[in-house]
Amino acid sequence: MQIPREVLLRSYRAMRTIRDFEERLHVEFATGEIPGFVHLYCGEEASGVGVCSHLKDTDTIASTHRGHGHCIAKGVGVDGMMAEIYGRSTGVCRGKGGSMHIADLSLGMLGANGIVGGGPPLICGAALSHKVLKDGGVAVAFYGDGASNEGTTLESLNLASVWNLPAVFVVEDNGYGEATASSYACAGTQKDRAAGFGIPYFECDGTDFFAVHETAGEAIAHARAGKGPAMVHVHLSRWYGHFEGDAMTYRANGEVAKERAEQDCLKKFREKVTEISLLDSASLDEIDASVRDEIEQAVIKAKAAPLPEPEALMQDVYVSY
């Protein structure tokens, strides 16, 4: 399948933006200026971007605690995200949600989520809205290997299948839920779980944008065509600790370094597109430079932005106040 040049450029830019955003947060978090918990998506960029490259603003996604990448891939602006993570009033959630709760419903982004397994049921509901309202939309739940063991996730697979919903379940399998390996915690296989609910199963290498793009494209087309839910099992690795501050004493020395060297989705993308002359190095370099500047500006703006006013504490508990 030939991917349009403009989609390639946009996707590369999104992956680069996620990478730089997360690498920068890693540095900023260490200074102590960022409050709360931060879970980085580095190494997993091609998954969110590959999937979302098929989605419009009118499609819906639900994300996880590791949500920055999904937000960027769905089009949430980095200025608003950075400000949110810094707890500023200019943040996408006005500083009231933070890293784990970034959401922008106008872009079909139903929120990062602090509750593991929180997203899949919500995505059944979003898919139901798309179906009942006949707006042609699909709903995509991103969730981890760890979250695949939540009852809410397994019940949602069943519900989506029973109701024949335009829902896609994207299992981002980075091999760990916190410090516990999926080889320990997940019985059977994701493939058999999908089969158990009569759901078509797709899988791909999540460090290869082209593989994710192609596989997710099929799954999303299936759901969009009204044929019911699909599962996409994306194989990945996370490059940082579960959250910032985790020393990853459960992973072998050198494992992450090797993955960074050999399975970097950005490097692989660049190699592939330049090798077959889809894009030239110069246009990728240009994106790199422009993203670097964008992230730098986002941090500067976030740090300079005002803190929430005291009134914000009591606002938006309900629609009426």
Partner: peptide
């Protein structure tokens, strides 16, 4: 509980890696 030991199945063979979050 979740990760009350931590590290089960991990590549480092360190099954008491966390001792809780």
């Amino acid at each position: 509980g979740e990760d009350v030991a931590g590290g089960q199945g991990g590549s480092a063979d360190n099954p008491d890696a966390w001792g809780g979050v």
